[in-house]
Structures are given as C-alpha cells and as structure tokens.
Design a protein around this nucleic acid. Structure first.
Lengths: 205, 205
DNA sequence: TCTCTTGTTTACAGTGACTGTAACGAACGG
DNA sequence: CCGTTCGTTACAGTCACTGTAAACAAGAGA
C-alpha cells in the first residue's frame, strides 16, 4: 500500500496545482484556460479534471485544513465554554498569527489579488463559507440540545453570523494586503476591528 | 418614446422567462438547455442571452424588487429606529404575508424545488444575498456614522448577520413547503422560529 | 519471472454555457 | 418618404466539463 503509484499521483496533482497558481498569478484567473494549465504542466486536460473537479478547485486545493482545524477547536474547548465563544477565540487567534510566515503571506497576497479579480472565485468562496457554517450549525445545535432538522433556527443563525464575521475579517485583511501597506502597520488595526466585530456577537450562544 | 419596439422587447423577455420556468419546473434546471428554452420560446439562443446574462437569471428575473423594497423600508423607518430593527421588522412582516396569494405560493413551491435541486441556483442565491448585505452595510454604516471603507467592520457584520437570518428563514419556508404539509400548519411555526431568530440579533445595532 | 489485475493517464469525441460579429428587417424620427 | 436606430438572427468560435475506450505502468499472486 506504500505505493509508488500513489506518490506519482500526488506529485502530478501538486505539479498541476503549482503550475496553475503560477499562471493565474501572472495573468489572472479568467485569462488562463484549463487547457493551458494542462499543457504547461505537461498533462492532458482530462487529467487536470481527474484531480480537480472544477477550475476553481485549482486555487482552493488546500481548503480542507481550515474546516478540520475549526472542528478540532470546537471539540477541544474547555467544558462549559459555549461553541460560539470557542469559535470566536479560535478565529481571532488565527488572525493574530496572520502572515507570520513570509511564504504564507506571499501566498495570501496572490490569493487576495486573484479572488478580488474573479467573480467565479468569490462564488467559490461563498460556497466554502456556507459549508463551514453548516458544520458549525451541527455543533451548535448539539450544544443547545436542539434536534437538528427541527424548527429551531437559532443554531443556523448563530453559525452563519459567526462565519459571516469570519468572511468579513478575511475581506478586511485582503483589502489591507492589497493596499500595499506594510503588514506591521495594518495587522494590529484589522485585528482590533476583528475583535470588535466578534465582540458584537459575543452575546449569542 | 411610447414604443411599440419596447413593448415587443418586453414581451419577448417575458415569453422567454415564462417558457424557461415552465420547462425547468417540468424537468429540472440542469436538464433543460438554454438552446431548448430558446427553441421552445421561438427565438434564437443569442436572443435569450441578450435578455438574460446567465441561465440562472432566467429563474431570478424578478429579484430587483426585493432589494428596492428593503431599501424603501429602511428609508421609511420612523426616526430614531435603528436600521437593524427596521430590517428585522420588514422581513418578519414579509414572512407573515407568505403565501397569501395562491399564485405566488405556487411559484414559491416551484422555486423551492428548483433551488434545492440545483447547486448553480444555490450559488446564484448566495450571490444575491451578498448583494443585499452590501446594500444594507452602506445604510448601517451611515447610521452608525462610520466612514464606509474604513477599518470598522461592525456595519458589515451586522448586515451579514441580518441577511444570514433572512436566508435561514427562507430556507425554513422552503423545507416546509417541500414537506407537503398545508401552509396553515407550518406557517405559524416557521414564523415563530423566524421571530426567535431575529430576536437573537435584536441587540445588534 | 510470468501473468493477471488494478489504477492513472491519454486520445478523442461531444455537450452546453456564453461571446463576438455581421447582416436583416422592422419601428422610429424627421 | 428616407435615413437611422435597435432588436433579432445566422454563424462561427471559445472554454469548462463529461464519457469512453485504449495504452501503459505498478501491484499482487503463482
């Protein structure tokens, strides 16, 4: 099971994703066709779609991690802590570490430019956020002792409000990143704004 | 300017939209191609795209009305009332009138089936909600005396939370509609849930 | 080592949403 | 009555994405 085959496959996948991100960064998401990504990566177009269901997935190939981290944070919260509070703390902690790693920060900058320039990627992002919210809802429903799929909308509203705040903060960081200002300057400001934003929702759970 | 031309154009547009909705209702959104809509409506595919930018727009052709109603409700609120409260009241009032008109209710049922069955339409709906939220944000920012485009994220978070609650309620009505139960039965329950949901956000502005 | 199976990639053909352009014809304005 | 405007058509093309069968290399078993 320690396969040469699996390794090759993974390698192909990463090769494709890396090529795609480079091309997109150079010329924009819409201006590069999947065919060109495939050609540049040295594979067939079909192979690209065997690895990535949509063109947008080429950009959001590492999204699974965030959701698992979020769920882990919820499951690891000290007993008695409300889910909403744990989520807020988790997110704020994550923002605080924004751009510690320069490589990561560079990647964020590229992503910021891509997403702000592409409606398709924005749609994809909304879809991701909606998925996070759905996951969150289940956890909150459990905590509140609400039978999910019942007529109580509070879990979903709380979940969506938290995720909306998250999306808003992400957007703020993006705008700040694109402004060209040095991160040391804007990071504290945005972080303070994020704290304030989540403070609004503190009374929720 | 009282044109025969404009009338014809409008007629063509409505003819296309009606045909499309009928076909979609019969066989599902994805199963009907734009080419077929055009053929059935007696026009060219290009004409369809001259009137509707995307296939999804064929379903959401009457969306503008909601946004203007929302804005009107905000502008018409009694002085001193917070925007968030006015919006909540406006939405709750709207839900209360849900399905008064049988024709409207039938249309809602069709839409419910279409949207729950089509990821593309769900994406479109998220986009619409995001636009509403953006509009709301501007109004809330003005009320709070916040320079929009500044580092204060509260207006956007409040706006998105309200719109998220709206989306949640819509979804609840959809699920109830699709359950096949009579509206007299589920409407009060969902309405109560909606009140509770907006009650959560009452402390916001 | 030989062989049979399994899984990844390719070649190829096709669908469907959407765009651009030039031409046609009917309503408009004078 | 005539030139212009504008909605529609005909046509050709791009691009994301799918299905299928064949090529080929890796894994498992004898």
């Amino acid at each position: 099971m320690a396969g040469v085959r699996e390794a090759r496959k993974q390698q192909t996948r990463e090769q494709i994703a890396a090529t795609a991100l480079r091309l997109f960064a150079d010329r924009g998401f819409e201006a590069v066709s999947v065919a060109e990504v495939a050609r540049t990566a040295g594979v067939t177009e079909k192979t690209v779609f065997n690895h990535f269901a949509t063109k947008e997935d080429l950009v959001y190939s590492g999204d699974q991690r965030f959701e698992t981290a979020l769920v882990d944070a919820i499951d690891a919260r000290p007993p008695g802590t409300p889910v909403a509070g744990a989520v807020g703390a988790f997110l704020l902690d994550r923002y605080a570490g924004f751009g510690d790693d320069p490589r990561r920060r560079a990647r964020q900058a590229v992503l910021a430019r891509l997403v702000t320039g592409s409606p398709a990627l924005q749609a994809r992002e909304r879809q991701l956020l909606a998925r996070y919210a759905a996951t969150l809802r289940e956890h909150i429903a459990r905590e509140l002792g609400v039978d999910d799929d019942e007529d109580d909308l509070r879990p979903q509203v709380i979940a969506e409000a938290l995720i909306a705040a998250h999306g808003t903060v992400i957007g703020a960081f993006r705008r700040a990143t694109l402004s060209g200002a040095p991160p040391e300057q804007y990071a504290p400001r945005v972080l303070a704004a994020a704290r304030e934003a989540f403070g609004l929702l503190a009374g929720l759970p």
